[in-house]
Computed example of a mutant assay.
Amino acid sequence: MNIARTRSFPGADIGSDHDLLMMTFRLRLKKTSKPKHTRLKFDLEKLKDPNVLETFQAMIGGRFAPLTIMSNDDTDIDSMITTFNTAVTETASEILGKHRQKKKPWITAEILDLCDKRRELRKKRFEPEGAAKYKEVNNNIKRCMKKAKENWIGEQCSEIEENLKKNNSKRAYELVKDLTTVKQGKVTTVQDRSGKCLTEERQILNRWTEYCSELYNHKANGDPSVLNCTQTDTEDDHPILRREVEA
């Protein structure tokens, strides 16, 4: 509320024992917080490395070994499920690590580590020594980003050439489209004739129906005289070109 622009009018004749008050205030709506996802996501891209895959299989196999020697009397479904989940989660956390979202496809794990380091130095960027380290890490991130993007574009171009050599034009054009097309968000609202935004699905469908009806409902102003064909002469000046049909 803007107190400086608040004013009362005690002399107003409004038939009440209250005074008229005029003020300027701003209403702020409370932001609803979305529930956080409790599901753990691991970096499964590391499993493409044969060495990491072999290490993961060996470690998780060693943790599953005690489950295979358990007798039927000692077997409890709930305890086995808990042991299984614990073994998988601990092994994945130790070998793979948590999955970190990449907003760009050319971002590497090295760049993400530098971003984490820059985030820690952000608190010390106002200090002389901290500002120098923060600037150094920030410039290093920019250089790595530029180099990684160039390498990724080069790999995409090589893949396009390889697909064209194999006559796989569909995949090649898909890669070209991904490189050249600017992705845009989906528009879920339209405007009516007066410029009012429509959000309801039924109103949007009705507006599209109205727009298409006005767009394609036009009258053709043609010349009907072109349909009047003149009678041709039956006598042919070139009888050799006339096709004769024998009865």
Score class of each variant (00 low, 15 high):
residue 6 T to Q: 09
residue 11 G to E: 13
residue 12 A to N: 09
residue 12 A to S: 15
residue 14 I to N: 08
residue 16 S to E: 03
residue 16 S to Q: 09
residue 16 S to H: 12
residue 17 D to W: 09
residue 17 D to K: 13
residue 18 H to V: 07
residue 19 D to S: 08
residue 19 D to R: 15
residue 20 L to N: 05
residue 27 L to S: 11
residue 27 L to C: 11
residue 33 S to Y: 04
residue 38 T to Y: 00
residue 38 T to F: 00
residue 38 T to C: 00
residue 39 R to D: 00
residue 40 L to W: 06
residue 41 K to V: 04
residue 46 K to W: 01
residue 47 L to I: 03
residue 50 P to V: 00
residue 55 T to N: 08
residue 57 Q to C: 02
residue 59 M to V: 03
residue 62 G to N: 14
residue 63 R to I: 10
residue 65 A to P: 01
residue 69 I to R: 02
residue 70 M to L: 08
residue 70 M to A: 04
residue 72 N to C: 13
residue 75 T to Q: 03
residue 76 D to H: 12
residue 78 D to R: 08
residue 79 S to Y: 06
residue 85 N to E: 02
residue 85 N to L: 07
residue 85 N to V: 03
residue 87 A to I: 02
residue 92 A to H: 00
residue 93 S to I: 00
residue 101 Q to E: 07
residue 101 Q to M: 05
residue 102 K to I: 04
residue 103 K to R: 05
residue 104 K to G: 00
residue 106 W to L: 03
residue 107 I to Y: 11
residue 108 T to P: 03
residue 108 T to M: 10
residue 109 A to F: 04
residue 110 E to S: 15
residue 114 L to K: 14
residue 114 L to M: 13
residue 115 C to K: 14
residue 115 C to V: 05
residue 119 R to A: 11
residue 120 E to N: 05
residue 121 L to H: 10
residue 127 E to V: 01
residue 127 E to N: 04
residue 130 G to W: 02
residue 130 G to S: 12
residue 131 A to Q: 07
residue 131 A to H: 04
residue 135 K to S: 15
residue 136 E to N: 06
residue 136 E to S: 11
residue 137 V to P: 02
residue 139 N to T: 06
residue 139 N to F: 08
residue 139 N to Q: 09
residue 142 K to V: 08
residue 144 C to S: 13
residue 146 K to F: 00
residue 149 K to H: 05
residue 152 W to F: 12
residue 155 E to S: 06
residue 155 E to Q: 10
residue 156 Q to Y: 11
residue 159 E to G: 10
residue 159 E to Y: 07
residue 160 I to R: 04
residue 163 N to Y: 12
residue 165 K to R: 11
residue 165 K to N: 14
residue 167 N to C: 09
residue 169 S to V: 14
residue 173 Y to H: 12
residue 176 V to Y: 02
residue 177 K to C: 10
residue 179 L to K: 01
residue 182 V to A: 00
residue 189 T to A: 04
residue 189 T to C: 04
residue 194 S to R: 06
residue 196 K to L: 14
residue 197 C to V: 08
residue 198 L to P: 02
residue 200 E to Y: 00
residue 201 E to N: 13
residue 201 E to L: 14
residue 202 R to S: 09
residue 206 N to C: 04
residue 209 T to H: 10
residue 209 T to E: 12
residue 210 E to Y: 13
residue 211 Y to A: 03
residue 212 C to M: 07
residue 212 C to Y: 11
residue 214 E to N: 10
residue 216 Y to P: 02
residue 216 Y to Q: 04
residue 218 H to E: 04
residue 218 H to W: 02
residue 220 A to E: 11
residue 224 P to T: 05
residue 225 S to P: 01
residue 228 N to E: 12
residue 231 Q to L: 12
residue 233 D to C: 15
residue 235 E to A: 06
residue 235 E to K: 06
residue 236 D to R: 05
residue 237 D to A: 11
residue 241 L to H: 12
residue 241 L to D: 15
residue 243 R to C: 09
residue 244 E to I: 13
residue 245 V to S: 08
residue 246 E to I: 06
